[in-house]
Every structure is written in structure tokens, then in C-alpha cells.
Design a binder for these strands. Structure first.
Lengths: 105, 105
DNA sequence: TTATAATATGAATACATGAACATATGAGTT
DNA sequence: AACTCATATGTTCATGTATTCATATTATAA
């Protein structure tokens, strides 16, 4: 009875909930937003990112790993340099839309 | 020179960064996602929310305050009961899209 | 006015998170 | 091989956050 009431609405399964929350968590930190926003414009090496955004290299690497685990970024190696680029159109679109929305209030 | 490089790309001002990160932070917690997802379907009292999602009333109140501060939800009073509903079309659309995306991978 | 129902608030706690530092790895160079 | 550059990783620390319990507020009913 209570059970029926509870299930009256289309509740979210735990896995979906986890994926969704993780995705938004990636976008909830200013540093990661700045990195993704930069990668939206162009592919960048780790050093370029840390120089451009004035962040410690280790910090950038940690954040990139986080984003890579969620498959929001990908990378390719070129000699000693590793170039990162974004890898999730949907998330990038979401980020751009929300930035645009915030800018125009 | 470095300065010019840094500003080559359209960087985000601090306020925008803050608004965007806060918005996504609201969506980065499973409990808040469940609450917003429920409110997407219908206006609910605090008690309904806590019953429906099996959450402590105080927990629900705390999360609702968080969402209210960001103007993601609004409320109206009816006697002793307070009914909450969503109040940001853009954020709700973003949430729905991301849930849909996660469900269909 | 007292009692009760619905909600909000404050404090405590356990846990997660972001940043920094030091150090390790790995690829190219000499 | 030793050296250097680019990046990754491990650890520590301070801060932030989610949840819970206890209690306060607010509105209605008796």
C-alpha cells in the first residue's frame, strides 16, 4: 500500500542516480569547469592547461584523471607531451548551456 | 605576453564560475536529484517527500533550503502544510536530459 | 490556552573533497 | 648510461558536506 504509493512515480534506479550525480559532480567544481571550458576551445597539453589557468600541474593531473574516469576527456600522446580533449558531447553541451544561462542570468 | 596568451581564450569571470558550479553542485547529490525528480512530477509537501523517498524529515528540510537558496524550488503554505515545487525550468530541463542520457547510456 | 501536526533550525559527527608538496614514472636527448 | 622534460601518483591537511538527533517554530484544533 505504502509501497504502491512510493512506486506511483517513476523512481530512479541506483545506478542511474550514481551516474547522474557523478556527472554533475564533475561539473560542480570551478577548477574542473575552467579546464573543460578551455578544452571546449582547443585540445591542450597538461602544461598548457596549468599555465593558462594558473594551476599547479599536479592539481591539473588529478582533475584530468577524475574527468578521464568519467570519460569526459580523452588524451593522446605525442612524445613527452600528452594532449587532452573533451570526449562527451552531451556534457559539454550541458556545460555550455548552463554557462550561457548564467551569463544572461 | 603570458598575459596575452592567457586571455587568448574567453575565460570565465568568477561570478559566473560560482553560479555555474553551485548550480551543478545542487544536482550532484543523489538525495537532491531524487527530490527534484519527484518535484518534476508534482508539487509535494515536506512530509510527502520524506515518505515517498524514505528520507528523514529534517534531511528533506535541509536539502530543500539548499535548493530554495539557489531558487531551484519555491513553496506555498496551506495551513500547517508547505508545498514545494520546482522553480527553474532550465535546471529541470538539464536534469531531465542528463537522466535520459544516462538511462540510454 | 494547551495540545498536536508540519516544518525548520542548530549542533554534532562522520565522511568526502580539493589543493599542495614531494616523489615516481616514462619518453626523448645527449 | 645519465639527464631533462612532461606528466602521474601518493600522502597529508584543511575545508566542505550529508546526515542525524534534538529542539524550536508555526499554524490549527480542542
Amino acid at each position: 500500500m505504502d509501497q504502491i504509493r512510493k512506486e506511483d512515480y517513476h523512481s530512479l534506479d541506483e545506478e542511474t542516480l550514481f551516474i547522474v550525480s557523478q556527472t554533475f559532480k564533475a561539473l560542480s567544481d570551478p577548477t574542473r569547469i575552467r579546464i573543460l571550458h578551455l578544452l571546449f576551445e582547443k585540445e591542450c597539453s597538461v602544461t598548457e592547461i596549468s599555465d593558462c589557468l594558473e594551476l599547479k600541474q599536479s592539481n591539473v593531473s588529478h582533475q584530468l584523471r577524475f574527468l578521464k574516469n568519467l570519460r569526459l576527456v580523452k588524451y593522446r600522446r605525442e612524445g613527452k607531451t600528452i594532449y587532452y580533449s573533451h570526449d562527451d558531447e552531451h556534457v559539454m553541451k550541458t556545460l555550455q548551456q548552463t554557462i550561457h544561462h548564467a551569463l544572461h542570468e
